[in-house]
Design a protein around this nucleic acid. Structure first.
Lengths: 152, 152
DNA sequence: AGATTGGCTGTATATTTATACGAGCGTGGT
DNA sequence: ACCACGCTCGTATAAATATACAGCCAATCT
């Protein structure tokens, strides 16, 4: 019942414009599927459909957030540094974090997530994260904070 | 007023999870922007933001409509900033441009294409472009120019 | 100047969506 | 058989979002 209905929903959406759940309900009824708006709300949630000014649409290939599967809390910076961090060093207003191979991206992402005001932006390669701070003073602040995580 | 607010909205969304317009309203208030839910509804419509089970998200750069003119002139920096740009900030002789995920590469490419003399080089990650300038003064020049594009 | 137009916003409210709760049903255990 | 559990769904309603309407302001026209 449910599976078939959800397939039908995707079919309807891929071929016509739907701007409300009630409209979707009417279109499904023409296909012989009769349900309430509440059920559609739940289906839409499960299918991870998106609603924009142009109505509902199928989940956009590129998930901007998580790969949808495992929904845990995102790992903290501390955990990332523990797992991947190797060394930190400051250079003027920049901080360079050395990581294990492949660890730079996750560390940079976790760093961004912290939302620290001393961080203007981060760039990650394969095993190096470059952190840009407004000035040397705040770069020092960040360096210390990360070094402390490394050493804990 | 409106332009600045809409930029702030994109920034908030790119860095935190927002599941309702009222939540967005509170987060904007912490940034000193105070508006009503009704206005946000209109902004969200104009920005073509999408809402899914995971909250609001930025439109996925690539407009689905009309894959028509595939090979036109390469997109201008202005267009790239409009599509992907979130924020600009200067740090000494560097300029950091925050973009939507995946937007850094195209923005950096467009920036290179401009051939500005104040730009020594660019580096792009996933959502951050680092622009290196000869000195702070010229970095300020670039920052202003890009900020103006953001706010248009 | 006074009138007119258009953009932006808030208020109030209509419309749409999400959810608390409970009923119905099939499965597996005792 | 009986019960417990889990899943699906509808009803009723809470919560969230969109919009009709009006006020305000600045720019432009007569």
């Amino acid at each position: 019942m449910k599976d078939q209905r959800q397939i039908a929903i995707r079919e309807v959406l891929s071929s016509s414009l739907v701007t409300s759940q009630d409209e979707l309900r009417r279109k499904l009824r023409r296909r012989g599927i009769e349900v309430t708006q509440a059920t559609l709300s739940r289906d839409i949630h499960e299918l991870q459909l998106l609603k924009g000014p142009e109505g509902y649409s199928l989940p956009n290939g590129h998930r901007s957030t998580a790969p949808a599967g495992a929904d845990d809390a995102p790992p903290s910076l501390k955990e990332m540094i523990d797992s991947f961090g190797l060394r930190v060093q400051q250079a003027m207003n920049q901080v360079v974090i050395g990581t294990t191979l492949g660890g730079a991206q996750p560390v940079a992402a976790a760093l961004d997530r912290e939302g620290w005001s001393e961080v203007v932006g981060t760039l990650a390669g394969d095993d190096t994260v470059l952190v840009i701070c407004p000035d040397p003073k705040r770069a020092g602040e960040i360096t210390g904070r990360i070094r402390r995580m490394l050493e804990s």
